[in-house]
Each structure stands twice: as structure tokens, then as C-alpha cells.
């Protein structure tokens, strides 16, 4: 469904991501793991159309999407949830969700599903997004992305700023979505959570894919254990 090949991305003259390649197949959950500053966010932003790539190819559902504007990519069915969330802070929950459905296509059935997944959002439907807690904002960001019935959901660090309990809850929701057949790509520093969710993973260091394999293989890898799982 998503094929990334030889992606180079940088800011100005400095390249941050060097020849990154990976794939996500339909129905799969894939994790990109790596430490802060490894190039995960840069990679995802380029795929979502928020950042110009220097070289490479990104194919989504048979279309070359690299170089397309973010709003075009979004309308192709690729929903990106950035770590900073970019919610419409001054608008209530229900308006954020309505906009997520793409402003020209209201979708009451989908709204019902999102409220069923995150009952908290329904309780707070009239609350202004800016005044909600971090965990609620994260739910809203995911909920807004789901409103467009995406074929692929890409999340960047969905646990940013969340207490451990809320982080686990966020992943529980993602796991429910997986169960419903949604294809998920997640970049994460909290490696144990990400590997529990994902079928496969890629380890990115210094802007390069250093390692890949099934979640099982990565969990068993001594380097991964030492660097990301806190096992000596």
C-alpha cells in the first residue's frame, strides 16, 4: 500500500534523512522506531506532503505522491497525525471532527464510530480543543484523522506528553483500530508499546534504516534490547 524508496529529506543544505526505504502492506501495522532526532518525523512529514524531499519515491495505492501538497495527499486517503497534533484549538470537539471528515462531506455514521471508540470525546463534544488535557487532545487528533475514513493512518509519536497510563490507553485504541483492519504506520520512541502493536518494525538511526524485521525479531535483537528496551 505504501512503498518508500531511497528517500532523502533535509532542511536547507543539510540532509537529515538518507535513502530511507520501507514498505507497509494493506492491513499491516508497521512501527518506525528510533531515538529523538533520528529522522522519523522528517520522513513522515515528507510522506504527508508537509516537507519537500530531495530525492526518492513514495508510492501510495499506486500513485506517486511525493511532491504532492499535503491536502492532496490527505484526500487520497492517507491520514497523518503529527506529534504536535495541529488541532483547531479555538473550535469545539465536534467541529474538529466535522472538519476531519473533509469539509465538503459530512459523515454521521463515521462520527458515531469515532465517538464509540473514544467516548470521552462525545462527553466533551462542545469543549474547546485547546482547553482539553493532553490525552484528550491526542484522542481528538486520532479521531479527526479517522473521520476521513483513511486507508492508511500514520501517527508520529502518539504518546508525546502523555503519562504512561494514557500512553497505554492510546495504544489500546490503536490496537482496536488494527483489529478493524486499518493499516497503521507509527513512529515511536516508546519502543515496547510500538512493537506490541506492530507486525513489523524498522529501526532508524541518524537518518538511515539500520535494521528491520518482525516485531518478534526486533524484540529479540540484542542491539534493540540494549538501545530501546532497557535490557542490558
Amino acid at each position: 500500500m505504501l512503498e518508500v524508496e531511497g528517500l532523502d529529506v533535509g532542511y536547507g543544505p543539510s540532509t537529515v534523512v538518507h535513502g530511507v526505504s520501507f514498505t507497509v502492506a494493506e492491513g499491516e501495522a508497521v512501527a518506525i522506531i528510533g531515538s529523538n532526532g533520528a529522522g522519523k518525523t522528517t520522513t513522515l512529514r515528507a510522506i504527508a506532503g508537509l516537507l519537500q524531499a530531495g530525492a526518492g519515491r513514495v508510492n501510495f495505492d499506486g500513485h506517486d505522491i511525493l511532491g504532492e501538497a499535503a491536502h492532496v495527499v490527505s484526500r487520497r486517503g492517507l491520514a497523518y497525525v503529527p506529534a504536535e497534533r495541529h488541532l483547531f484549538g479555538g473550535m469545539p470537539v465536534h467541529e474538529n471532527l466535522a472538519l476531519g471528515a473533509h469539509p465538503d462531506k459530512p459523515d454521521p455514521d463515521r462520527l458515531r464510530q469515532v465517538y464509540d471508540l473514544f467516548p470521552r470525546l462525545e462527553e466533551r463534544r462542545n469543549q474547546t480543543a485547546r482547553t482539553m488535557s493532553g490525552g484528550e487532545q491526542q484522542m481528538l487528533a486520532v479521531g479527526r484523522a479517522l473521520m476521513s475514513r483513511p486507508r492508511l493512518l500514520i501517527l508520529d509519536e502518539p504518546t508525546t506528553g502523555l503519562a504512561p497510563k494514557l500512553a497505554s490507553e492510546a495504544y489500546a485504541a490503536l490496537s482496536t483500530l488494527r483489529g478493524e483492519g486499518l493499516t497503521v504506520l507509527v513512529a515511536e520512541q516508546q519502543v515496547p508499546l510500538a512493537l506490541d502493536l506492530a507486525d513489523r518494525g524498522y529501526v532508524i538511526e541518524d537518518g538511515r534504516v539500520e535494521l528491520d524485521g518482525t516485531s518478534e525479531q526486533l524484540r529479540g535483537n540484542p542491539d534493540v534490547q540494549r538501545a530501546y528496551l532497557g535490557i542490558a
Binding site: A69, H71, A79, L87, P103, A145, S148
Partner: peptide
């Protein structure tokens, strides 16, 4: 109106608007 809501979404957060398919 829906178009008006799209306008407000860009006023609120331009990147957020792009991510939900609004062309700023």
C-alpha cells in the same frame, strides 16, 4: 457553512487544515 468552516480551519491552524484536506 462548510466553506466558512474551512476558512476558519485555516485561521486556526494552517497545517491542521492541510492535513484534513483543505487547500489553504
Amino acid at each position: 457553512t462548510r466553506a466558512g468552516r474551512a476558512v476558519r480551519s485555516v485561521i486556526e491552524d494552517e497545517v491542521g487544515a492541510e492535513l484534513v484536506g483543505v487547500n489553504p
